[in-house]
Write a protein that binds this DNA or RNA. Structure first.
Lengths: 264, 264
DNA sequence: GAGTGGTCTAGACCACTGT
DNA sequence: CAGTGGTCTAGACCACTCC
């Protein structure tokens, strides 16, 4: 049995898909839609909940409900790591010409805005375990919010470095120097650290309240969380926790396999 | 301002976290909870919606609402690909001893159950594009559902192979031969194909109706979708679409970086 | 201040489970 | 068939946006 709210959602979805309602158009108001579809307000709202979860409409409190932009999915490709590493030895001008974020988003540099915020903190349980150091180890916590002009942030990253590792280059503790040409791998290179391996751990879950606020999404909206752990040989040198609205991102990973021996 | 349904959810969540309600325990019925928390039924249900989305409770229509098992997250590591490839040349007994799924889940082989279902189909738009062949190309579509005894399925995979590639080994078209010792890489090896690279594309989204049914989860529950594209040199040889309930899985990827040249 | 979406209520009826 | 959760209603009040 198909429910009333699903049927109602389907009819409105059809209006959008057919182009009768265009991107940015305001839907009729809730009382009007209730009338049109012969349902009560709660049922109508449940129907719109479905469309909102699908990313087809946005609700703006006090203003109206609007047909949403189909999300431009950002693509984050693991090849960015090798690409970034290859730039470590380039002169600054070359490194500055293009950053990973532009590559991911396809956006132009002049359309990108950064918010970077640095703090000196003591490693909590979780971070200490990730680095395999003692709790309370002094760290620098770097929070990044990046957005295209006129859009909500497309993701947040919180990166941790050991202060013991980066202390010899005070510029690394200064948020004013961000975005750093060449990214974290070049930053670590300035203190003699070469990143040799990166592990990514990926989960999908619902946003915490803080994340929802930072990314301007609903509480409990689905997000993808990626923890990037950078190693220099057998030592962890950076732990970066990234979070994106699930609908905004696609991750890609490439695994090259060694040729089989003893064949040909 | 915190809403009434959030406050109500928090109180019930606290009961679970504190251990006053144990895994498997039935919650008081909705009318009782309404009374206890002084809210209407719709508000109470919204509170329970939150807990259900967090995976803390399960609702069973007609039976009750119960404290859910904390999900055992399955970990799928990209190193499985190299591991599988290294086994291609091993004798069957060795290959059969242990499969990727056991490695991912940590489950014992005797506790795992498979449902495999093969069909011969013509490539649709999407699959044809992924293989870079013409639409209508004959393919074998292999659907896998795997579960631990007594649990709902933990994931579904739909794999496509070109019939032109595998025709020389009819055993590959027979679902009765699954699970195949050594997995897909060994299967392809039997028809002279060596997998040299694997690309994974990952999205988080909500479950389709078919997926929700197959995985025994709610419609629109969040899932992780992973498309694995296997290449033999510059030719696509398998496209496998995996889907897991988002709360049940963590993905891990390892990227090794080449040493920087001209240094030391 | 008029109009929008967000929350909440008290009650009804239905579908499903277990005995 | 008694009791559970699932859906739906008609109305109320509130918070927010925009004129």
């Amino acid at each position: 049995m198909t429910t009333k709210f699903e049927a109602c959602a389907s009819r409105i979805r059809a209006l959008i898909d057919s182009g009768r309602l265009q991107v940015g158009d305001q839907l009729p108001t809730e009382p009007v839609l209730c009338e049109e579809h012969g349902v009560s307000r709660m049922t109508l709202r449940r129907a719109i909940d479905v469309l909102e979860a699908e990313g087809r409409v946005v609700r703006r409190h006090g203003a109206g409900t609007f047909v949403a932009d189909p999300p431009r999915r950002l693509v984050r490709d693991s090849r960015r790591y090798a690409w970034e590493k290859n730039r470590v030895l380039l002169p600054e001008a070359d490194r500055a010409a293009r950053g990973s974020t532009e590559v991911d988003t396809g956006a132009e540099r002049h359309n990108l805005r950064w918010h970077a915020w640095f703090e000196e903190v003591l490693a909590d349980n979780d971070i200490a375990a990730a680095f395999d150091v003692d709790e309370g180890e002094p760290m620098v916590r770097r929070t990044y919010l990046s957005r295209e002009v006129g859009s909500p942030p497309f993701g947040r990253a919180i990166s941790h470095l050991r202060i013991a590792d980066v202390r010899t280059n005070p510029a690394l503790l200064d948020a004013e120097r961000e975005p750093w040409p060449g990214g974290t791998q070049h930053q670590l290179w300035t203190v003699g650290i070469e990143v040799t391996r990166i592990d990514d751990q990926i989960k999908a879950r619902t946003a915490t309240t803080a994340e929802a606020q930072a990314l301007q999404i609903r509480d409990n909206a689905p997000v993808i969380a990626l923890r990037k752990v950078s190693w220099s040989d057998d030592r962890v040198v950076e732990v970066a926790d990234n979070v994106w609205p699930a609908s905004n991102i696609e991750l890609r990973f490439t695994t090259h396999l060694e040729p089989l021996k003893g064949t040909d």
